[in-house]
Design a protein around this nucleic acid. Sequence first.
RNA 1: GGCGGCGUAGCUCAGCUGGCUAGAGCAUGCGGUUCAUACCCGCAGUGUCGUUGGUUCAAAUCCAAUCGCCGCUACCA
Length: 658
Amino acid sequence: MTKGNFYITTPIYYPSDKLHIGHSYTTVAADAMARYKRLKGFDVMFLTGTDEHGQKIQRIADEKGVTPKAYVDNIVGGIKKLWELMKISNDKFIRTTDPYHERAVQKIFKRLYDQGDIYKSEYEGWYCTPCESFWTQTQLNDNKCPDCGRPVELTKEESYFFRLSKYQNALIQYIEEHPEFIQPESRRNEMMNNFLKVGLEDLCVSRTTFDWGIPVEFDKGHVVYVWIDALSNYITALGYLSEDESLFEKFWPANVHLVGKEIVRFHTIIWPAMLMALGLPLPKQVFGHGWLVLAGGKMSKSKGNVVDPVVLVKKYGLDAIRYFLLREVPFGSDGLFSNEALIGRINADLANDLGNLVSRTVAMIDKYFDGIIPDERAEGDFDQDLMETVLAAPAKVDEKMDSLEFSAALVEIWKAISRTNKYIDETAPWLLAKDESQKPRLAQVMYNLAESIRIVSVLIQPFMVETPEKIWEQLGILDAKETQWDSVYSWGGYQSGNRVQKGVVLFPRIDLEQEMEDLSKLETGKDLSKQKKAGKKTDHQEKEEKKEQEDSLITIDDFAKIQFRTVTVIEAEKVEGADKLLKLKVRMGDEVRQVVSGIAKYYTPEEIIGKNLILVANLKPVKLRGIESQGMILAASDDNTLSLVTLDKALQSGLKVT
RNA sequence: GGCGGCGUAGCUCAGCUGGCUAGAGCAUGCGGUUCAUACCCGCAGUGUCGUUGGUUCAAAUCCAAUCGCCGCUACCA
């Protein structure tokens, strides 16, 4: 009886910290899609979960003095609660620490090894300890960690590698033959131009430097590194390589993996290559959505942007938040998240348009007909136009949903709402009510209003999860037939005899100014400027923004470890072939040091000679573009300008700075 | 540096393969209405469509250059 199967996934989130509104964004979108497909009669599998291994979690757990498992159990509990709060209708929640997943990952790893797609070698790379990331020489930025800009160390590690390079051509061909595979299109171009066409390198898929991961069965000391562990969740969740593969057979390949744009690459290159190696079909689509970005950095504090979804839901109601997330930003683009925008949407779309429409309609039916619309009705002007407009919505919603245009789908529904509000003005029921002979006409008008609202209430079900029922209650809709998706393609589903009932205000209006004040108070003590992007970041690749805060306090001893010295620049020249680098010779007392510094865009060699600067003198020397740099010059920069830290008064070089 | 994208009313944006007096929502002003959550309905705008050239009977829409912003990515010693 079903229309077919539909498998949709969110990324599995990294439970190193509480989730924020960006995570909710992805998950609510997936939820809306899953609900929509269920309403359409599909057999849906909606998967979400958590990616729980890795060094970062191990380290955080260590710091807190708990086991990694205990640590993630706690966080995952919170995540599950959040999804309950947001009424996420996932059919399954996978944790990469689930035993069935671990077993399947081991089997996958073994299989790929046995067939030669994984081989053992040595990983030589530059390691950034704070970020726990390896980088290749070419990834480095001025020989520093491209993520955090701190120095990296050359490290060797025995590792297993996945032959990603082998699948390069097959991937290119697949992507070219399946233009719908990577969406939106701009992401496809990025993957093609930046990775596939320039060539893929084999991928390191095991680690020996930590043990919080799935052990490689046949080689103790190695744990499976993120890729095979995390990405395979999409199939292990379905029982792939378990005793019961029936779900896998039923739902794979997935219809769509919803991911944030920052992890499109993993899902469109690494993951498909893994699947090819396993001889499995590829997911039909990977959709990389945009980020919700917090409104302007320095403004955000004073404007008090709240990004904790729990707080938002409690404050404004679940449906308001879900509506905002899906409505405000076209799904493929980035969008601004601000409390003003949120409140604006709530007031304009939800309170004024939808909520008020329901309220006024119910009030009129109640007032004019004691709650039940009489069967004796008379058609009149505007009826036809109303019907046409409202009935046009379902097909448009279908069309938009099929391409994951949630925002556009909601726009279509709201056109119907607007049309209905206008219809009230056109028909002026309060005038009809004054004339006894117009009762049948008034009844028809009331019926049309009720029916329009009924259709709208059915259409909003994928997006809003509490409001539809509240509306049905007020309209006196009891029969499930009236709330089925199929019932909105024709007029007349609202049944005679339904008794309307005034109810609670669906969406109370919010006083914007008052609210912004409250929010600022709520935010005191919290520094949101650190959190510029509320977008979801799920992987081990995630940058750690909190680290700065955690590590921000040092002792005087820590400070003493760094030797700052005054120096004078005696020579300077551009580094051949590098845009950003200047090679400096500096005098430090009797000593002359060679320093390479990434300031070429801001200083010419000529202007820097003779300057008195501060050098970090005991920094481990590194080679930058083959030139040894014996220290680091201090400078400050904002987005546009960089300024060297110079001495206010002329002093000799070589002095200690304390 | 390479690839891609963006720059349109105060704000957020629509405007596909060039063609009626350049649109929507929000905000603003005015008018109407009273069933309703001071709501709804109507009307009114303002825009050198980033800048400069070019193609064309005709360009916001195509081409070139340029400025500004953003995304991905990189440095060829």
